[in-house]
Design a protein around this nucleic acid. Structure first.
Lengths: 163, 163
DNA sequence: TATTGTTATACTCTATAACTATA
DNA sequence: TATAGTTATAGAGTATAACAATA
C-alpha cells in the first residue's frame, strides 16, 4: 500500500555471492533476516569459540555485568529467554566462576559478575566489537542508521507471553 | 571509520515496547538481527501452524515448486541446509504427498511438486504474504529498500563449506 | 576420486508443564 | 494467589563423520 515500492523481485542484482542463485524467497524480509542473522551468529560463535562460551552465555554475562544484582528471570526477560532456559546458562556461568549469587529474597538471587567474570566480559566485548566491525563496515552511515532504526520496530511486533 | 556515525548508544528512544528496557546489546547489529528474525520466525510459524508445516519444510517446498526436477542437495544449497538435514525434510514432504521423486541419475532424484503440493504452495504463499505484510507495513518505501539492499550483503559475508 | 543420498549422533536454542519454596 | 528457581522433556535447527551406491 505504499506509492511506488521498488524492492526488486529478483533482489540484489550486483551481489558478489555466486552461491546465491536467487529464489523468490529473496524478496521476503523474514527470509533475508533469517539468513543474515544466521551468518552473523555463525561468525560470532567462531569469534567466541576459544573463549569456550556460547552466544547465549556471553549475552547473559553481559547483561549481568550491566545490571549488577539482577535476578536470572530479569536477565531472561531482557534477552527473551524463558526462566526454564536460564537455569543451565546461569549454572554454567557459576561453574566457571564468572558470576556470583547472593540470596536476595528467599526465592530470588542477586547476580553479579566476579573479577574473573569481568575479565571475560572485557575479552568478549573486544571480540564482539571485532565481529560487529566486520559487518557494519559493509554499510554507509545512512544504511546503518536505517538498520538500527528498523530492526527494533520488528522486535516490537511480538506478542510476548512468559519471558 | 565512517565520518559521523549516529547510531544511538541507547537505541530507539521512542520505542513503543515497554519490555525492551535497553541494554548495550541493542546497539549491536547482530543482536538486533537475531531478535528481529526470531520475532518474524515465530509469527511465520504461527501463520503456518494449521497447515501443519514448519518454516523449513515450506521453504523447501517453495524451492522445489520453483525449480522442478531439482535434487535435494540443490534445494539444500539454495536454502543453506546441509545434505544430511535435507533428508527428514524431503521425507516429510514425500509422506504427505506434496512432492514426487523420479530417478534422475542413479544416485540423485528429480523432485517435483504434486497437484496436492501445488495447492499447499498456493495456500502457503498467501499466508506468507499476509505475514510479510504485517511487518513490511511498519516501514516506508525507502526503509524497505534499504533493508532489502543491506541484508543480502550480510549474507554474502559467510564463508560457506558443505551446503 | 567425487557426488547423492543416507544413517547416526550431538549440540544449541527454544517451548511446555509441573513442582518447591517462598512471598 | 503469584513469583523465582528448578526439573524434566520435547521439538526444531544445525553440525560432523561415516557409509553405500553411483558417476
Amino acid at each position: 500500500m505504499q506509492p511506488t515500492s521498488s524492492h526488486p523481485a529478483s533482489a540484489t542484482p550486483g551481489s558478489s555471492t555466486p552461491g546465491t542463485s536467487g529464489t523468490s524467497l529473496d524478496r521476503l524480509l523474514g527470509y533475508q533476516l533469517r539468513r543474515a542473522s544466521a551468518v552473523m551468529m555463525a561468525d560470532l560463535a567462531r569469534e567466541l569459540a576459544d573463549l569456550e562460551m556460547r552466544p547465549a552465555e556471553v549475552t547473559a554475562l553481559l547483561v549481568i555485568a550491566e545490571t549488577p544484582g539482577c535476578s536470572q528471570t530479569e536477565v531472561g526477560q531482557v534477552l527473551g529467554i524463558k526462566r526454564a532456559n536460564m537455569v543451565p546458562i546461569v549454572s554454567r556461568l557459576m561453574d566457571r566462576g564468572l558470576i556470583d549469587r547472593e540470596r536476595a529474597d528467599g526465592r530470588s538471587h542477586a547476580l553479579r559478575v566476579t573479577e574473573t567474570g569481568a575479565e571475560v566480559v572485557a575479552d568478549a566485548l573486544a571480540r564482539i566489537e571485532r565481529h560487529e566491525a566486520r559487518f557494519s563496515s559493509l554499510f554507509d552511515t545512512a544504511t546503518l542508521d536505517a538498520l538500527h532504526a528498523a530492526l527494533p520496530l520488528i522486535r516490537g511486533q511480538r506478542d510476548d507471553s512468559d519471558g
